[in-house]
Design a protein around this nucleic acid. Sequence first.
DNA 1: TCACAAAGTGTTAACGTACACGCAAAATAT
DNA 2: ATATTTTGCGTGTACGTTAACACTTTGTGA
Lengths: 344, 344
Amino acid sequence: MVNRITIKEIARKADVSIGTVDRVLHNRGRVAEATRDKVLKIAKEGNYSSNVMARHLKLNKTYRISVILPEENNYWLMLKEGIEEGCEEFGQMGFTAGYCFVANDGSQAMQLNQILDSDADGFIIAPSAFHQQTDLLSKLREKGKPYVFVDSNIIDAGQLTFIGQDSYRSGVLGACLLHDKYLSDYEIYITTFSESDIKEQIIKNRIEGFRSYFDENQISHVNIHEVNLEKDQITADDFLNVLLKHENPVHLFIPNSKTYKLAEQLIQFKETNQLRVVGYDLLQSNLRLLNSGTIDYLIHQKPKVQGYLGMQSLYKNIVLKTDVPLHQYMPLDIINKENVMYCQ
Amino acid sequence: MVNRITIKEIARKADVSIGTVDRVLHNRGRVAEATRDKVLKIAKEGNYSSNVMARHLKLNKTYRISVILPEENNYWLMLKEGIEEGCEEFGQMGFTAGYCFVANDGSQAMQLNQILDSDADGFIIAPSAFHQQTDLLSKLREKGKPYVFVDSNIIDAGQLTFIGQDSYRSGVLGACLLHDKYLSDYEIYITTFSESDIKEQIIKNRIEGFRSYFDENQISHVNIHEVNLEKDQITADDFLNVLLKHENPVHLFIPNSKTYKLAEQLIQFKETNQLRVVGYDLLQSNLRLLNSGTIDYLIHQKPKVQGYLGMQSLYKNIVLKTDVPLHQYMPLDIINKENVMYCQ
DNA sequence: TCACAAAGTGTTAACGTACACGCAAAATAT
DNA sequence: ATATTTTGCGTGTACGTTAACACTTTGTGA
């Protein structure tokens, strides 16, 4: 990186003007084949790469990043925080971000069209923000605008990169946290709620991973139940009664961020049944339950870091023009009462 | 950050030349009091901050960062990796790093003097690299060079920032991971080795935190033992026998990265005693023991991220000239077999 | 043969900053 | 009164890149 060759030097070595070198390097034609080859050879030998500072100074361009998120809750605001941090760091390069929280009603299409019209230079998208079908992505592809997926992925959708967890493995981890070797027979309840399609898929993966742990390790003293409270039309109180009726001890795996929806029931559950509760995501409400000892472990996705990495990826793509890996898997963070205070 | 006022604009508004504005902003004198005030007022109103790109382009300066680490093992090489990543990202700004692994013999002073003479622009230092007393830090302070501590801290030593864990809280976490509510009386062995002063302090903090967990939660069915294998002159095999003789089940807390030194004994221990082993740091050898199920949890400090943050902090200080927090605490990462593959 | 396009190349002015230099006016010294 | 220094300020150039523009030379069609 140090002592890189400059256009001026290439020009001198090739005995042409910097204008010609520029035309060669930028493929804007009208250069004799022989000259072209000579310049390219020298550039390659000198390991030329354009000076980002100088280019940015000349172009004096600002880059607007449009961020598309589902709702303005605690979780997504943490992601936003990370993006803001990125703006601060890449602000010198002229990076700014604008946010759109997509409404879950008829106005989604209109909102997304507005975003398209605003013509940003890059996008950070949480796919679960798409409450209905959309052709936003294909339009972005047509325009050649880079977009990054955070939190959840869509396979082969032309994204620059995906930043998030491997949901299958996070399920395996959840299982491991609920595995008790010394306990004789015990029950595990997997509790879900109905969600949007994309989230549904993530939760399916988590559950698959969760079950695979017990299958692959041939653990048979565990009885796994799966309950979708909304689909099965069970109230939280009824569910609590089901849990308490068991003679065996009971563990709980809640493969979504909505643990808080069972808050009151969980507190009661914990009073009589000392077994573990594993949930997802450090929402404010979940944090309270963690601190009070109601939730034992949360699997955390570091939304703030996701946001930061999203900005960083766009910076690398747009400004540095370097490659970005297609998958940037976030660590599967285990959070409990004792390490939550240093959790990013 | 966007649409910042430029020197030229300030000059126009103040009805002076850019040279005068420059003299004011850089305090290089020979400006009339009245002019000075006028320029400063306009600069402040326009929220002036110098354009880092332009300045860097003009100065065309490269920054050399000198990295001082204890030894070239797995752990510190991960930290180096993070620094290299930072070099890549800030390479456009002319950042490069050079490494010095300090020998643990008489040549330390000579090595450190060489580093001083090489006259780098910033330093990343793992304080445990100082095997003997040194006045390197005071010399760096005299020269006004910024230095960052990673891994372990020295209080009030003039560092730009410290990047690492809160060792006390990490001990608390370790205790939590070894806390079994349903077990009747059981034993916990805290196993240490002799270390350099600075590391000794960290380990003392971890143990203090560890013990405080059981004290504060008034947990009395746990008997905690502390053994320094080197000081107490106990061989690993003898230690194993001590563990196996207990009638109560036994947990192990090894508050340093040297779990691997007990590898064979631990494997035997695990065969008869199914209780948990908690260690520190994802060394290659510890990783093997984790994957084989011998170690249950490792508390991980993300050395790679520490390295990256070190470079980032120096970049922010040297180039952006922004403030950096004095403490940047790393998360207390819980690593087990199931999440180790996505661990940074 | 001339006009005029096309191909191939060079020149130049920015972007915002830093800093050396120069020049006038005022202040001081001789 | 003249010489010299000091004070206050403006000018110009360079960093590396981009892109508009201008200039030659050759090719093409009427």
